[in-house]
Amino acid sequence: MITCHIESFEECLEELKIILPEHYKELALNQDKVPLHPNYPFYIEQEKLGKLIFIVLRDAGKMVGYFIGFIAPGLHYQTCLTCTMDIFYVCKEKRTGSAGVRLFRFVEAELRRRKVQRWFMGSKIHADASALFKRIGAAPVETYFSKWLGD
């Protein structure tokens, strides 16, 4: 059974650290130059300020996925409470069925409860999740580009 949970980022951090390398290995760009090194204190601080949403997918207690987003009034639109997705992940062996859709529908319900008005979510070109986002009624609005400058 897979269930969705609203949890504390800070309290779940040690569990999260187990999955993050798997997530990084599958999806991160420029892995030969950019190691995984999250700014955990920043996330914890945002959570304490009420600006973080952290939803966990669990199967028999084990964390098998998560969604992390930041919630704040839009920088250009202060009247619009906005959720900007940071990352999401569902472990490979749990991607059958509807785990992703359930996760995002749960996130949406919680965002609605928190009176969020607009929700931004991003999809990687090399790991396209746009079908999932379209399934929950979201529409593509922007394309992000990346160029490596660090050499």
Partner: peptide
């Protein structure tokens, strides 16, 4: 009295 993450 007893609970673990995963309880809703």
């Amino acid at each position: 009295l007893q609970s673990r993450p995963g309880v809703i």
